[in-house]
Amino acid sequence: MADTTPKSNGAGEPIITVRNMGKSFDDFVALRDVTLDVNRSEVLCLIGPSGSGKSTLLRCLNFLEAYDAGEVRLDGELIGWQEGVSPRKARSSGTLRKQRQHIGMVFQQFNLWPHMTALENVAEALIQVKGMGKAAACEKAQAALAKVHLSDKAQSYPANLSGGQQQRVAIARAIAMEPRVMLFDEPTSALDPELVGEVLAVMKEMAAEGMTMVVVTHEMGFAAHVADRVAFLDAGRLVTCAPPADIFAREPDDARVRSFLQTYRERNVV
């Protein structure tokens, strides 16, 4: 993709900075005091038991959930809230939309629009958000579908695609916007086991091309082999964030990480 920074250039410096971020739902504290950097061209996997807050953390990064403490910045720009305004005031919907354009997101349930073909799903935001003409948008959408190896399914409706194909269309829909970061919320959890591989393969290719990716996943194999770093969350706290070798290879220092990974070890996943 055109404006994706290649791995050799600018890699390693933070693109997303999360500082002391917290999020509560009424009385329930979903996240507390999370501080985390996502570096350019890095693949960061978020793992942890269900209910640990990893999906909430991901959704705070593009303000689909409004975090209520601390800050999230993309390339230095505060996401969602107006800069320096207290008490907090959300940015205008127009500004929020501009910020979100740079953050692609892929959902567990794909969330394709069923009344549109694969091509139309991908082209829609190019037309409505980027203001591209229909022909140019379709050409670009076609190229995005080629990246996820679905050129031949451009005219298919979601209902006629397998789960794996639908998720790849959803990935194409996000990357067509040329985001600076891609967020994945359990992208393979809704898939039949035999369809998981094709989605992970596409994600690996994106990682190899230098896309910055934050991935909430239960695929420990993917986390172990593709991630640059793995963050482990438990009960709304960031327990540790380290290279996968530290987390998976030897006995991890933290007891919570150890017991979490134990269930996967028993099934020979890692």
């Binding site: 501009k98 629009w113 829909r173």
Partner: peptide
């Protein structure tokens, strides 16, 4: 499904287009 609206929000699609399209 609410996810369709969420996907539109994540892409930055404006409210009017979300309703119309």
């Amino acid at each position: 499904p609410a996810g369709q609206t969420e996907a539109a929000h994540a892409l930055g699609i404006p409210g009017f287009s979300l309703w119309k399209r």
